[in-house]
Design a protein around this nucleic acid. Structure first.
Lengths: 181, 181
DNA sequence: TCATAACCGAACAAACTGTTCGGTATTATG
DNA sequence: CATAATACCGAACAGTTTGTTCGGTTATGA
Protein backbone atom coordinates (compact mmCIF):
# COMPACT_ATOMS: atom_id res chain seq x y z
CA UNK A 1 0.00 0.00 0.00
CA UNK A 2 1.30 3.39 -0.98
CA UNK A 3 2.85 5.35 1.87
CA UNK A 4 0.68 8.36 0.99
CA UNK A 5 -2.49 6.33 1.20
CA UNK A 6 -1.63 5.00 4.63
CA UNK A 7 -0.82 8.49 5.83
CA UNK A 8 -4.02 9.98 4.48
CA UNK A 9 -6.13 7.15 5.85
CA UNK A 10 -4.56 7.49 9.26
CA UNK A 11 -4.97 11.27 9.24
CA UNK A 12 -8.66 10.87 8.48
CA UNK A 13 -9.13 8.30 11.23
CA UNK A 14 -7.44 10.54 13.75
CA UNK A 15 -9.30 13.65 12.69
CA UNK A 16 -12.54 11.72 12.83
CA UNK A 17 -12.09 10.27 16.30
CA UNK A 18 -10.83 13.64 17.49
CA UNK A 19 -14.03 15.28 16.32
CA UNK A 20 -16.09 12.42 17.71
CA UNK A 21 -14.82 13.26 21.16
CA UNK A 22 -16.23 16.75 20.89
CA UNK A 23 -19.50 16.41 19.00
CA UNK A 24 -21.99 13.69 18.08
CA UNK A 25 -21.54 11.73 14.88
CA UNK A 26 -24.60 13.19 13.23
CA UNK A 27 -23.40 16.76 13.62
CA UNK A 28 -19.99 16.19 12.09
CA UNK A 29 -19.80 17.20 8.44
CA UNK A 30 -17.46 15.67 5.93
CA UNK A 31 -16.00 19.13 5.43
CA UNK A 32 -14.98 19.29 9.08
CA UNK A 33 -13.24 15.95 8.83
CA UNK A 34 -11.43 17.13 5.72
CA UNK A 35 -10.31 20.33 7.42
CA UNK A 36 -9.22 18.52 10.58
CA UNK A 37 -7.34 15.92 8.60
CA UNK A 38 -5.90 18.68 6.42
CA UNK A 39 -6.42 16.94 3.12
CA UNK A 40 -8.08 17.87 -0.16
CA UNK A 41 -11.78 17.38 -0.61
CA UNK A 42 -11.47 15.00 -3.53
CA UNK A 43 -8.90 13.00 -1.61
CA UNK A 44 -11.40 12.17 1.08
CA UNK A 45 -13.92 10.92 -1.43
CA UNK A 46 -11.22 8.88 -3.13
CA UNK A 47 -10.82 6.97 0.13
CA UNK A 48 -14.33 6.81 1.53
CA UNK A 49 -17.60 6.94 -0.29
CA UNK A 50 -19.42 8.50 2.61
CA UNK A 51 -19.23 9.33 6.29
CA UNK A 52 -20.99 6.09 7.20
CA UNK A 53 -18.48 4.13 5.21
CA UNK A 54 -15.69 5.86 7.10
CA UNK A 55 -17.20 4.80 10.39
CA UNK A 56 -17.55 1.27 9.11
CA UNK A 57 -13.92 1.24 8.04
CA UNK A 58 -12.81 2.56 11.40
CA UNK A 59 -14.74 -0.14 13.24
CA UNK A 60 -13.32 -2.79 10.93
CA UNK A 61 -9.85 -1.45 11.66
CA UNK A 62 -10.38 -1.79 15.40
CA UNK A 63 -11.92 -5.25 15.19
CA UNK A 64 -9.13 -6.45 12.94
CA UNK A 65 -6.83 -6.21 15.94
CA UNK A 66 -9.35 -7.34 18.54
CA UNK A 67 -10.62 -10.49 16.87
CA UNK A 68 -7.43 -11.35 15.07
CA UNK A 69 -6.31 -14.71 16.41
CA UNK A 70 -9.10 -16.25 18.44
CA UNK A 71 -10.27 -18.32 15.50
CA UNK A 72 -8.64 -21.62 16.24
CA UNK A 73 -10.38 -22.54 19.48
CA UNK A 74 -10.59 -26.32 19.63
CA UNK A 75 -14.07 -27.71 19.80
CA UNK A 76 -13.35 -30.02 22.67
CA UNK A 77 -15.99 -31.83 24.62
CA UNK A 78 -14.26 -31.25 27.90
CA UNK A 79 -16.36 -28.65 29.73
CA UNK A 80 -13.75 -27.26 32.07
CA UNK A 81 -11.25 -26.87 29.25
CA UNK A 82 -13.83 -25.21 27.09
CA UNK A 83 -14.74 -22.70 29.76
CA UNK A 84 -11.10 -21.95 30.33
CA UNK A 85 -10.70 -21.36 26.60
CA UNK A 86 -13.67 -19.04 26.54
CA UNK A 87 -12.36 -17.05 29.47
CA UNK A 88 -9.02 -16.76 27.74
CA UNK A 89 -10.57 -15.63 24.50
CA UNK A 90 -12.72 -13.02 26.18
CA UNK A 91 -9.72 -11.80 28.17
CA UNK A 92 -7.83 -11.46 24.92
CA UNK A 93 -10.64 -9.40 23.44
CA UNK A 94 -10.78 -7.14 26.48
CA UNK A 95 -7.04 -6.54 26.40
CA UNK A 96 -7.08 -5.43 22.83
CA UNK A 97 -10.15 -3.28 23.27
CA UNK A 98 -8.28 -1.48 26.02
CA UNK A 99 -5.66 -0.44 23.46
CA UNK A 100 -8.21 1.52 21.46
CA UNK A 101 -10.00 2.76 24.55
CA UNK A 102 -10.05 6.48 23.76
CA UNK A 103 -11.13 5.89 20.19
CA UNK A 104 -13.83 3.45 21.17
CA UNK A 105 -15.07 5.70 23.91
CA UNK A 106 -15.46 8.48 21.37
CA UNK A 107 -17.42 6.26 19.02
CA UNK A 108 -19.66 4.99 21.81
CA UNK A 109 -20.45 8.47 23.06
CA UNK A 110 -23.19 9.02 20.47
CA UNK A 111 -25.30 7.47 17.72
CA UNK A 112 -22.22 6.03 16.06
CA UNK A 113 -22.08 3.71 19.04
CA UNK A 114 -25.04 1.87 17.60
CA UNK A 115 -23.03 0.99 14.50
CA UNK A 116 -20.05 -0.06 16.54
CA UNK A 117 -22.15 -2.20 18.81
CA UNK A 118 -23.85 -3.87 15.89
CA UNK A 119 -20.56 -4.99 14.33
CA UNK A 120 -19.20 -5.90 17.73
CA UNK A 121 -22.17 -8.12 18.45
CA UNK A 122 -21.85 -9.82 15.09
CA UNK A 123 -18.32 -10.83 15.99
CA UNK A 124 -19.31 -11.89 19.49
CA UNK A 125 -22.13 -14.03 18.21
CA UNK A 126 -19.52 -16.10 16.43
CA UNK A 127 -17.44 -16.37 19.60
CA UNK A 128 -20.34 -17.51 21.76
CA UNK A 129 -22.04 -19.65 19.15
CA UNK A 130 -20.42 -22.84 20.36
CA UNK A 131 -21.30 -22.35 24.00
CA UNK A 132 -24.93 -23.31 24.08
CA UNK A 133 -25.45 -26.79 22.79
CA UNK A 134 -27.64 -28.06 25.57
CA UNK A 135 -31.21 -27.11 24.90
CA UNK A 136 -33.05 -25.21 27.57
CA UNK A 137 -36.73 -25.50 28.17
CA UNK A 138 -36.72 -22.11 29.81
CA UNK A 139 -36.15 -19.93 26.80
CA UNK A 140 -35.41 -20.16 23.06
CA UNK A 141 -31.83 -21.01 22.21
CA UNK A 142 -31.52 -17.86 20.10
CA UNK A 143 -32.62 -15.73 23.03
CA UNK A 144 -30.01 -17.26 25.32
CA UNK A 145 -27.26 -16.80 22.76
CA UNK A 146 -28.15 -13.18 22.14
CA UNK A 147 -28.35 -12.75 25.87
CA UNK A 148 -24.71 -13.71 26.25
CA UNK A 149 -23.76 -11.50 23.34
CA UNK A 150 -25.43 -8.35 24.59
CA UNK A 151 -24.31 -8.97 28.15
CA UNK A 152 -20.71 -9.00 27.05
CA UNK A 153 -21.11 -6.15 24.57
CA UNK A 154 -22.87 -3.96 27.12
CA UNK A 155 -20.31 -4.89 29.73
CA UNK A 156 -17.66 -3.51 27.42
CA UNK A 157 -19.68 -0.35 26.84
CA UNK A 158 -19.99 0.04 30.61
CA UNK A 159 -16.24 -0.50 30.99
CA UNK A 160 -15.42 2.17 28.44
CA UNK A 161 -17.48 4.65 30.43
CA UNK A 162 -15.88 3.75 33.76
CA UNK A 163 -12.16 4.20 34.00
CA UNK A 164 -10.05 2.41 36.53
CA UNK A 165 -11.04 -1.22 36.07
CA UNK A 166 -8.64 -3.72 34.62
CA UNK A 167 -9.53 -6.24 31.95
CA UNK A 168 -9.35 -9.02 34.55
CA UNK A 169 -11.75 -7.28 36.90
CA UNK A 170 -14.28 -6.64 34.18
CA UNK A 171 -14.01 -10.22 33.05
CA UNK A 172 -14.82 -11.33 36.60
CA UNK A 173 -17.78 -8.97 36.76
CA UNK A 174 -19.10 -10.47 33.57
CA UNK A 175 -18.80 -14.06 34.67
CA UNK A 176 -20.29 -13.21 38.05
CA UNK A 177 -23.43 -11.67 36.55
CA UNK A 178 -23.95 -13.51 33.28
CA UNK A 179 -25.60 -16.92 32.97
CA UNK A 180 -22.74 -18.55 31.08
CA UNK A 181 -23.49 -21.87 32.81
CA UNK B 1 -55.33 21.32 22.82
CA UNK B 2 -56.62 22.51 19.49
CA UNK B 3 -58.13 19.81 17.33
CA UNK B 4 -55.94 20.90 14.41
CA UNK B 5 -52.79 20.58 16.43
CA UNK B 6 -53.62 17.06 17.51
CA UNK B 7 -54.37 16.13 13.94
CA UNK B 8 -51.16 17.60 12.60
CA UNK B 9 -49.08 16.06 15.35
CA UNK B 10 -50.59 12.67 14.73
CA UNK B 11 -50.11 12.97 10.99
CA UNK B 12 -46.44 13.74 11.50
CA UNK B 13 -45.97 10.82 13.88
CA UNK B 14 -47.61 8.45 11.43
CA UNK B 15 -45.70 9.74 8.45
CA UNK B 16 -42.49 9.50 10.41
CA UNK B 17 -42.95 5.94 11.61
CA UNK B 18 -44.13 4.99 8.14
CA UNK B 19 -40.91 6.28 6.64
CA UNK B 20 -38.89 4.71 9.43
CA UNK B 21 -40.13 1.32 8.33
CA UNK B 22 -38.66 1.85 4.91
CA UNK B 23 -35.40 3.73 5.43
CA UNK B 24 -32.97 4.49 8.24
CA UNK B 25 -33.48 7.53 10.41
CA UNK B 26 -30.39 9.30 9.12
CA UNK B 27 -31.56 9.16 5.51
CA UNK B 28 -34.98 10.62 6.15
CA UNK B 29 -35.19 14.34 5.41
CA UNK B 30 -37.57 16.73 7.06
CA UNK B 31 -38.94 17.45 3.61
CA UNK B 32 -39.95 13.83 3.18
CA UNK B 33 -41.75 13.82 6.49
CA UNK B 34 -43.57 16.99 5.50
CA UNK B 35 -44.61 15.50 2.18
CA UNK B 36 -45.69 12.21 3.72
CA UNK B 37 -47.67 13.98 6.43
CA UNK B 38 -49.08 16.33 3.80
CA UNK B 39 -48.63 19.52 5.78
CA UNK B 40 -47.00 22.87 5.15
CA UNK B 41 -43.33 23.34 5.74
CA UNK B 42 -43.72 26.05 8.32
CA UNK B 43 -46.29 23.95 10.12
CA UNK B 44 -43.77 21.25 10.79
CA UNK B 45 -41.32 23.70 12.26
CA UNK B 46 -44.06 25.21 14.37
CA UNK B 47 -44.45 21.82 16.04
CA UNK B 48 -40.91 20.46 16.14
CA UNK B 49 -37.66 22.32 16.19
CA UNK B 50 -35.79 19.54 14.46
CA UNK B 51 -35.92 15.92 13.37
CA UNK B 52 -34.19 14.79 16.55
CA UNK B 53 -36.75 16.62 18.62
CA UNK B 54 -39.51 14.84 16.72
CA UNK B 55 -37.97 11.49 17.57
CA UNK B 56 -37.67 12.53 21.19
CA UNK B 57 -41.32 13.57 21.24
CA UNK B 58 -42.39 10.30 19.68
CA UNK B 59 -40.47 8.30 22.27
CA UNK B 60 -41.93 10.42 25.06
CA UNK B 61 -45.38 9.76 23.64
CA UNK B 62 -44.82 6.02 23.74
CA UNK B 63 -43.32 6.01 27.22
CA UNK B 64 -46.11 8.16 28.56
CA UNK B 65 -48.41 5.17 28.10
CA UNK B 66 -45.89 2.53 29.09
CA UNK B 67 -44.64 4.00 32.32
CA UNK B 68 -47.84 5.72 33.29
CA UNK B 69 -48.93 4.22 36.58
CA UNK B 70 -46.17 2.08 37.98
CA UNK B 71 -44.96 4.86 40.21
CA UNK B 72 -46.58 3.92 43.48
CA UNK B 73 -44.85 0.65 44.19
CA UNK B 74 -44.64 0.26 47.96
CA UNK B 75 -41.15 -0.04 49.33
CA UNK B 76 -41.90 -3.05 51.44
CA UNK B 77 -39.27 -5.13 53.12
CA UNK B 78 -41.02 -8.37 52.32
CA UNK B 79 -38.92 -9.99 49.60
CA UNK B 80 -41.53 -12.24 48.06
CA UNK B 81 -44.02 -9.40 47.85
CA UNK B 82 -41.42 -7.16 46.33
CA UNK B 83 -40.52 -9.66 43.65
CA UNK B 84 -44.16 -10.20 42.85
CA UNK B 85 -44.55 -6.44 42.51
CA UNK B 86 -41.58 -6.23 40.20
CA UNK B 87 -42.88 -9.02 38.03
CA UNK B 88 -46.23 -7.28 37.84
CA UNK B 89 -44.68 -3.98 36.93
CA UNK B 90 -42.51 -5.48 34.21
CA UNK B 91 -45.50 -7.37 32.86
CA UNK B 92 -47.41 -4.11 32.73
CA UNK B 93 -44.59 -2.50 30.79
CA UNK B 94 -44.44 -5.36 28.32
CA UNK B 95 -48.19 -5.25 27.73
CA UNK B 96 -48.15 -1.60 26.85
CA UNK B 97 -45.05 -1.91 24.69
CA UNK B 98 -46.91 -4.51 22.69
CA UNK B 99 -49.53 -1.90 21.82
CA UNK B 100 -46.97 0.23 20.00
CA UNK B 101 -45.16 -2.76 18.57
CA UNK B 102 -45.08 -1.73 14.91
CA UNK B 103 -44.02 1.79 15.74
CA UNK B 104 -41.33 0.65 18.14
CA UNK B 105 -40.08 -1.91 15.72
CA UNK B 106 -39.64 0.81 13.12
CA UNK B 107 -37.71 2.99 15.52
CA UNK B 108 -35.49 0.13 16.61
CA UNK B 109 -34.64 -0.85 13.07
CA UNK B 110 -31.91 1.76 12.73
CA UNK B 111 -29.81 4.40 14.51
CA UNK B 112 -32.91 5.94 15.99
CA UNK B 113 -33.08 2.81 18.10
CA UNK B 114 -30.14 4.11 20.06
CA UNK B 115 -32.15 7.14 21.14
CA UNK B 116 -35.16 5.04 22.01
CA UNK B 117 -33.06 2.62 24.02
CA UNK B 118 -31.38 5.43 25.89
CA UNK B 119 -34.69 6.90 27.07
CA UNK B 120 -36.03 3.45 27.75
CA UNK B 121 -33.06 2.58 29.93
CA UNK B 122 -33.40 5.81 31.85
CA UNK B 123 -36.93 4.84 32.78
CA UNK B 124 -35.93 1.29 33.59
CA UNK B 125 -33.11 2.41 35.83
CA UNK B 126 -35.73 4.05 38.00
CA UNK B 127 -37.81 0.87 38.06
CA UNK B 128 -34.90 -1.35 39.04
CA UNK B 129 -33.21 1.11 41.36
CA UNK B 130 -34.82 -0.33 44.46
CA UNK B 131 -33.93 -3.92 43.71
CA UNK B 132 -30.29 -4.06 44.66
CA UNK B 133 -29.76 -2.99 48.21
CA UNK B 134 -27.56 -5.83 49.32
CA UNK B 135 -23.97 -5.14 48.40
CA UNK B 136 -22.17 -7.69 46.33
CA UNK B 137 -18.47 -8.30 46.55
CA UNK B 138 -18.49 -9.73 43.07
CA UNK B 139 -19.08 -6.57 41.11
CA UNK B 140 -19.81 -2.86 41.61
CA UNK B 141 -23.37 -2.04 42.51
CA UNK B 142 -23.69 0.27 39.52
CA UNK B 143 -22.60 -2.50 37.19
CA UNK B 144 -25.21 -4.88 38.56
CA UNK B 145 -27.96 -2.32 38.28
CA UNK B 146 -27.06 -1.43 34.71
CA UNK B 147 -26.88 -5.14 34.02
CA UNK B 148 -30.52 -5.58 34.95
CA UNK B 149 -31.47 -2.53 32.96
CA UNK B 150 -29.79 -3.55 29.72
CA UNK B 151 -30.92 -7.15 30.10
CA UNK B 152 -34.52 -6.06 30.18
CA UNK B 153 -34.11 -3.40 27.52
CA UNK B 154 -32.33 -5.78 25.18
CA UNK B 155 -34.90 -8.45 25.91
CA UNK B 156 -37.54 -6.04 24.70
CA UNK B 157 -35.51 -5.26 21.58
CA UNK B 158 -35.22 -8.98 20.93
CA UNK B 159 -38.94 -9.40 21.43
CA UNK B 160 -39.76 -6.68 18.94
CA UNK B 161 -37.70 -8.48 16.32
CA UNK B 162 -39.30 -11.87 17.00
CA UNK B 163 -43.02 -12.08 16.51
CA UNK B 164 -45.13 -14.72 18.12
CA UNK B 165 -44.16 -14.51 21.76
CA UNK B 166 -46.58 -13.24 24.37
CA UNK B 167 -45.68 -10.75 27.07
CA UNK B 168 -45.87 -13.54 29.65
CA UNK B 169 -43.47 -15.77 27.79
CA UNK B 170 -40.95 -13.00 27.33
CA UNK B 171 -41.23 -12.14 30.98
CA UNK B 172 -40.41 -15.73 31.85
CA UNK B 173 -37.43 -15.75 29.49
CA UNK B 174 -36.11 -12.67 31.19
CA UNK B 175 -36.43 -14.02 34.72
CA UNK B 176 -34.93 -17.32 33.63
CA UNK B 177 -31.80 -15.73 32.21
CA UNK B 178 -31.28 -12.58 34.25
CA UNK B 179 -29.64 -12.51 37.69
CA UNK B 180 -32.49 -10.73 39.42
CA UNK B 181 -31.78 -12.68 42.63
C1' DT C 1 15.10 8.26 -14.39
C1' DC C 2 10.36 7.94 -15.36
C1' DA C 3 5.73 6.13 -15.52
C1' DT C 4 2.31 5.63 -12.26
C1' DA C 5 -0.70 6.94 -8.95
C1' DA C 6 -2.02 9.91 -5.17
C1' DC C 7 -3.04 14.39 -3.91
C1' DC C 8 -4.67 19.20 -4.55
C1' DG C 9 -8.36 22.67 -4.81
C1' DA C 10 -11.52 25.33 -7.37
C1' DA C 11 -15.88 25.05 -9.27
C1' DC C 12 -20.47 23.04 -9.80
C1' DA C 13 -25.33 21.34 -9.35
C1' DA C 14 -28.35 19.43 -6.29
C1' DA C 15 -30.44 18.81 -2.03
C1' DC C 16 -31.61 20.05 2.62
C1' DT C 17 -32.31 23.32 6.54
C1' DG C 18 -34.52 26.64 9.20
C1' DT C 19 -36.81 31.11 8.98
C1' DT C 20 -39.91 34.78 7.43
C1' DC C 21 -44.22 36.66 6.00
C1' DG C 22 -48.73 37.76 4.06
C1' DG C 23 -52.82 35.41 3.45
C1' DT C 24 -56.56 31.75 4.43
C1' DA C 25 -59.28 28.60 7.16
C1' DT C 26 -60.74 26.64 11.56
C1' DT C 27 -61.57 26.85 16.21
C1' DA C 28 -63.25 28.11 20.75
C1' DT C 29 -65.89 31.43 23.12
C1' DG C 30 -69.21 34.98 24.32
C1' DC D 1 -74.10 34.06 15.26
C1' DA D 2 -70.13 37.03 15.54
C1' DT D 3 -65.45 37.58 16.34
C1' DA D 4 -60.89 37.30 18.01
C1' DA D 5 -57.44 34.10 18.36
C1' DT D 6 -54.72 30.81 16.37
C1' DA D 7 -53.32 27.13 13.45
C1' DC D 8 -52.23 26.31 8.87
C1' DC D 9 -50.52 27.30 4.10
C1' DG D 10 -46.75 27.87 0.75
C1' DA D 11 -43.60 30.69 -1.61
C1' DA D 12 -39.29 32.67 -1.15
C1' DC D 13 -34.80 33.17 1.06
C1' DA D 14 -29.88 32.60 2.51
C1' DG D 15 -26.86 29.42 4.16
C1' DT D 16 -24.86 24.83 4.44
C1' DT D 17 -23.65 20.25 2.96
C1' DT D 18 -22.91 16.79 -0.43
C1' DG D 19 -20.69 14.32 -4.01
C1' DT D 20 -18.46 14.88 -8.52
C1' DT D 21 -15.37 16.63 -12.10
C1' DC D 22 -11.09 18.07 -13.95
C1' DG D 23 -6.63 20.06 -14.99
C1' DG D 24 -2.46 20.56 -12.63
C1' DT D 25 1.17 19.25 -9.02
C1' DT D 26 3.90 16.17 -6.26
C1' DA D 27 5.53 11.93 -4.25
C1' DT D 28 6.45 6.93 -4.89
C1' DG D 29 8.49 2.78 -6.22
C1' DA D 30 10.58 0.10 -9.84
Amino acid sequence: MDRRQKKTRQAVFEAFTGLLERKPYGKISVQEIIDAADIGRSTFYAHFETKDELLRALCADIFRHVFSEGLQRESTHDFSTREKDLRAELAHILYHLDDSRSCIRAILSCESGEIFMRYFKEHLARVFAGELERQSAQAPRDYLLQHLVWDFAETVRWWMKHDGYSAEEVSRFFFAAAPVT
